[in-house]
Computed example of a mutant assay.
Amino acid sequence: MRFDVYSPLALSLLLAVAAPLTGRYVAPAPAARVLAVAAVLTAGATAWSLVLLGAALLGDVPPVVRGAGAGGRTPADPVPEVVGLAACLALVVIAVRVHRAVRAERRTRRALRRLCAGQPADTELIVAASAVPRAFAVPGRPGRILVTSAMLSALGPAERRALLAHERAHLAHRHGLLVTAATLAAAADPLLCPVRSTVAYLVERSADEQAAAAVGDRRTTARALAQAALTAERPRTACALHFADRAVTRRIAALRAGPQPSLGSAALAVLALSTLPPLLAADATGDLLRLLTGSTPH
């Protein structure tokens, strides 16, 4: 209990350090999926560990103490009281953070769906008249691609094909779900914010690779990225596909460098690491139950 209950926090830090390295050396598609799963597992284990730390305060409740000491044994104090109180406070903060993240996600999805409302069911591409260059993959049934007129006018025919292929990749591979999962995990465990940023970058890189394969030209896809970034910087507005993000130069360089090796063993290592927090949290749960009931391990 004394060690296992704290281990998910330490492993959160380790995953936060490993995430950028995974994104650098593992192909973007498997890396994004593995890191999203790892973030959810680690965040869940961390939150449960905080529940255990808070529940350890029950050991100081008189009925529990009397029940545990009925056999002549003095119940052990699993954690300091200040730690248990801090864990309870942290759980309140986590609940607020997750609630806000869920509300923000719902607002964004509702706004995008309103823009797509009234369109025929079989319409994949929706062009909105706007001076702001943007493009979005709108998940749903069916999934839609929403592009502004400013974005289309900024790109040539070949670059437009790369743009649409990029957005189709987001829909086909459910990239929005991966980013949402990583976002909620980071809300529950702020130590995982680097993992969330890496997943967001990797899904863009994965869509870049899918677009390059669809149009059959990596240089065209890189050119579409560069042109969209320049267009976004002129009016100083946010742009589609995180084109105005600092990572755009990395994405362009990656497209020009060629496909990235998979390195599945590294991805499996990260996935194996993500199984440790739930296992250790489960072991800590058993230890706490034994402490509260006054039973001895077999």
Rank of each mutant, 00 (worst) to 15 (best):
G44Q: 07
A27R: 11
R110A: 14
A162G: 09
T183Q: 13
C239E: 11
L11F: 13
L91I: 07
R246E: 15
L91V: 04
T293L: 06
G71K: 05
I126R: 04
G44T: 08
G140A: 12
A117D: 13
T198S: 10
A19L: 12
S197A: 15
R114H: 12
L289T: 11
A154W: 05
C239K: 00
A135N: 01
A31M: 04
T180H: 14
D217F: 04
L115S: 02
A254C: 03
S130R: 07
L288W: 04
L41D: 05
A76F: 02
D77A: 14
A253H: 13
S197D: 15
L291K: 02
L263V: 09
G143F: 05
T237R: 14
T296A: 15
D77R: 15
R246H: 12
R33G: 07
R290A: 13
E233G: 10
A213K: 02
L241T: 01
A187T: 09
G59P: 00
L225Y: 11
G67T: 07
C88I: 14
A162W: 00
R219K: 07
E81W: 14
L177F: 08
R219L: 13
A55T: 06
R234F: 02
T74D: 10
T42L: 07
G286F: 07
I252P: 02
P278E: 04
V195T: 14
S206Y: 01
P20T: 08
F243S: 11
L115M: 13
H175M: 09
L14C: 10
P261N: 01
H170P: 03
G286T: 08
L115P: 06
Y6E: 06
A207T: 08
A281R: 09
E204G: 06
E167T: 05
D208K: 08
A158H: 06
A158F: 00
V83D: 09
E167C: 03
